[in-house]
Design a protein around this nucleic acid. Sequence first.
RNA 1: GCACUGUUCGUCUAGAGGCCUAGGACGCCGGGUUUUCAUCCCGGUAACAGGGGUUCGACUCCCCUACGGUGUACCA
Length: 510
Amino acid sequence: MSERRVRVRFAPSPTGPLHMGGVRTALFNYLFAKKNGGDFLLRIEDTDQTRYVPGAEQYIIESLEWCGMQFDEGPGRGGECGPYRQSDRKPMYRQYAIELVATGNAYYAFDTPEELEAMRDRLKAENASVQQYNATTRGQMQNSFSLPADVVASKLAAGEPYVIRFAMPLAETVEMTDIVRGRVVVNTRELDDKVLFKSDGMPTYHLANVVDDHLMSISHVIRGEEWLPSMPLHVLLYRAFGWEATMPEFAHLALLLKPDGKGKLSKRDGDQLGFPVFPLQWTAPSGEVSKGYREEGYFKEAFINMISLLGWNPGTEQEIFSLEELGQAFDLTRVSKSGARFDLEKAKWFNQQYLRMQTDAQLAELFASDLLARGIERPMEVLLEIVKLTKERVTFVKDFWDQASFFFEAPVSYDEKVIKKRWKPGTSAMLNEVAGVLASLDAFDAHSAEEPVKALIEAKGYNMGQVMNCLRLALVGESKGPHLFDITAIIGKTETLARIARATANIAEA
RNA sequence: GCACUGUUCGUCUAGAGGCCUAGGACGCCGGGUUUUCAUCCCGGUAACAGGGGUUCGACUCCCCUACGGUGUACCA
């Protein structure tokens, strides 16, 4: 058993963009594969053509790529067990369903949707505890267990629509082991005769999933908790096929919850929640656009790191992990049993941590493209200086503009609160004196400018705080930013003097 | 309704019967550094859902209740 090669798969259905919960499921699969030197496959489960959304599959692949989770086998990448899209595997499934019929584990059913509804209504009216197609009700329905063999044969020969249902045992205890939850016991009396093969010729999730996992030699099924209730069906299918010896181990992950604690996070939440639920921006066929972490300015490393710690922890106090490190540290047995709620503040903190890990040159490069979008171009040396001075006060690359726009544009307004507090009578005159000192300088680097200004303030007995803050107001427009003379050095003498002149001319003394 | 599943600070979590006066992180609050803002440093706030057992001893084991989640489709 322990000799078995680890092979896991992420098996989304292309009914829309992948949301962060899906990304986390993919990530845990990926990390488990890395940890165990195994394979990570991508399989597209598109057995429901009515829910197919154009672009969704591409979106899923792009998302995995952005996150750095390269799959070893999958659509567009190939592999020994292809194809990896269930619609492309369609011809393979029927024989498995028929095999189950032959062994008495499944049967043909001819009931129409109306008949099914009638059955459920009737059982409901009788106050039955369950309204299901199962061992006790199937005898009253239209199927190959209840109908005479010749009738069934003629219906099939006549091409009448049918489905193939699993014959769930009447009352049998199924004991299973889940890596996250431990032992799970269910009695089959609670389960129904699930449709395995649909009348449109496609398998349902249950059949396709089990058959493909078997054919692809999947060793561990790591999926969302919404599948926990169907684990017994799947286990029974493995038994019915005689594949129990190579049945994968199961691990059901607790779901990501909505921030208000009302249900699981779903695709439909879009960005109604005040934060993105998708890794990448998504434009629905309707034209509606949902935000993505990538477009919001998150580093993918921060996104992955943040998501990895939702429902898992390494057991140490380390919180910052590269994808590589996660692959070393990951352990399925340390996955928590309860659902996790995402915290935007923590996500921002992660991004800030990763932003600080970037080199100044990388940040300058990123800032440069942001500036370019604003029509601003500056030499890289200058941007490098600005980045060094402001990187400690930003969380996202896009924040650089808020923290550094005054390096490029003179303030258009002045913070009223600062004016009220600092711009006392005589301020303009003081600043003009400072301007006079600055105007006389030859060298204009931070040190050369700072010393004479301070000397002036001390010689005249001015209030250092008042002069400096007012000078900052003139240059920046508000009370923020790096060391004042680092600013003057970058914007230069001409611009510095111009801003002082404009401020003294425009700000009224309180 | 029924089945399954879960429940430690606001949030993510540590805790596998005595190491717990329940630890960390984010947030928040206070203080210090900074002539501004931010950073940084220091400190603080805040939780074992409730009730029964078992045990010398329960956050840890069992039962019940409450609350939450998922499932109950020819959807995945």
